[in-house]
Design a protein around this nucleic acid. Sequence first.
DNA 1: CATGCCGTTCAAAATAATCTGAACGTTCGG
DNA 2: CCGAACGTTCAGATTATTTTGAACGGCATG
Lengths: 156, 156
Amino acid sequence: MGALWGINRSVARVHALLMATEGALSLEEIAERLQISKGNASMSLRELRTFGVVRQVEVAGDRRDFYVTEPDVWTMFFRILRERKRREFDPTLDAIHHLLAQPGARGEVRGRLEQMAELLTTVEGVVNRFLQDPASSRAALAFVAGLPFPGKRRKR
Amino acid sequence: MGALWGINRSVARVHALLMATEGALSLEEIAERLQISKGNASMSLRELRTFGVVRQVEVAGDRRDFYVTEPDVWTMFFRILRERKRREFDPTLDAIHHLLAQPGARGEVRGRLEQMAELLTTVEGVVNRFLQDPASSRAALAFVAGLPFPGKRRKR
DNA sequence: CATGCCGTTCAAAATAATCTGAACGTTCGG
DNA sequence: CCGAACGTTCAGATTATTTTGAACGGCATG
């Protein structure tokens, strides 16, 4: 799933381990179980916390840090969507706008750039709407996945 | 945009060059303009043809191969969606189903797997619907991007 | 205010991904 | 047939990414 989510192998493995574990795990135990260095585990956990799919928890009388996965998979999905939008999508759209602002492109080529900007703006609108209201977005997705589009009638 | 689309630097550059060019380009001209080897250009173009976002065209009286980009950006978008689904998404969903078929996971962990399967199945349904009917999908996206969800009323 | 325990950092090492270019097969004109 | 023009392939070189592990700083405890 790494490529799909845009995260690297270790990060994916740390998350998978937490997903596969009921309780909380310490940094050291994670490193041990996955046979990776503490340094790597530390950085991977930071990345996962940045995404917001892993949380640090306290254990009374223990000064180590423990970690658990965000329990709701849909919440994870929207968190990852948000972060990837920020890292990859937004800079792309900015770049296109920057290109369009220059007087360079003409004719067919400019048309393609404009179409690209339109597409990305549409996708951005969809993603923003999803991120604003995850619950109803989830319902909308289920609707689209399971029923025909309005205006399109099923042949029979 | 490379990371966003899941293609590497050279492939992205070849595509960008074709997007920025009105007419058709030969393999050699592409390699020359981008300062990459013919071999690299050849492989990149193959990848782009696999995605279906670049087409080979004939030029009368010239036995070299010439290439042009798919002119419609939305069509490109759906072609890339289709290919990434095939390469990254489908294997992931298969793996989850395989895990669920085994008797290993119990309790909370199994619940997460089931949620994950549900999420991926929903997304798969959405993507399939999009790929079946790109034109109305595009309209649906514009709708979602620009208007409130059904059942959610705007405050004012 | 030393000592041990933790987590973090980052330069260097290891690994993975990408790119090059020489070798090769095909096709076509003569 | 021959040779030249092309595109493709893939082993090896190069470049980029990831991982390690030693060094470090903070902090709680005695």
